[in-house]
Write a protein that binds this DNA or RNA. Structure first.
Lengths: 121, 121
DNA sequence: TACTGATATGCCCAACAAGGAATACAGCGG
DNA sequence: CCGCTGTATTCCTTGTTGGGCATATCAGTA
């Protein structure tokens, strides 16, 4: 996946500004609606109208989410005539979501295990 | 890094619930204060008191952030006498942050390039 | 230029989240 | 049992954010 080919990032002296910017990136992914948008774009670019149908979000609302994802670098924007095509900027999003889903599964299964084996292990 | 050794996560039919849970995971990282906490724990476990000093957060406030990071599975909690030691649950957090930092650097440098090369490319 | 369809933006409201202060709780020592 | 220290929780206030709605902008076309 795209994650392993990245050079070591800044690790020391994280200034408050840097923390805020990184937090902003995470915040862009911290919304079910936006994750739904990203998922809808997983298999190729879509127009806003397409996304309105697939996500069920209101047009204005959707547009705002798209702006946010574009501003944080997760989406590319291409105008083609009347339509605007949005697409995933790269594979990082998918990788990030996979990590989170993996963690989620782990936590859920281990939570289940904790329940079933409580007091018996 | 820890990201490549993970099996493919759930990709199809992301129910709203799943999206919300994943979003919650991202939201846990979507706060400068919590990122600061995680950074402080990068080199080993620390007590709440330690973290109060290193992060400059109020004790109550810090405790709440710790609960949140613990609830989302990013931190482990170990009681040792009066003290509670918090530690990173695994390396995923670091990997995730590296990805975000890498993206950030890319975006910043390309933004700079856009400014310096505008109308000249 | 006027008109239409696609997208973006501004305004408002409700829900939420973070920080501070005070307080409650847990474990140790006397 | 009591006091002390470290940690968790509650209440309150304030700032932020998502959603709906109306409206503005933009691009193509007659």
């Amino acid at each position: 996946m795209a994650l392993k080919s990245r050079p070591a990032a800044v690790k020391r002296a994280p200034t408050p500004e840097l923390l805020s910017m990184v937090a902003g990136r995470f915040r862009a992914l911290a919304e079910p609606a936006r994750l739904g948008i990203l998922h809808a774009l997983e298999h190729g670019p879509l127009t806003v109208t397409d996304l309105v149908q697939r996500t069920g979000l209101g047009q204005g609302n959707l547009s705002k989410h798209l702006q946010q994802l574009h501003a944080t670098g997760f989406l590319t924007r291409t105008r083609k005539g009347l339509f605007v095509h949005y697409a995933l900027a790269d594979d990082d999003v998918l990788a990030l979501c996979e990590v989170m889903c993996g963690r989620l599964e782990n936590d859920l299964t281990s939570a289940r295990a904790t329940i079933t084996t409580r007091r018996t292990g």
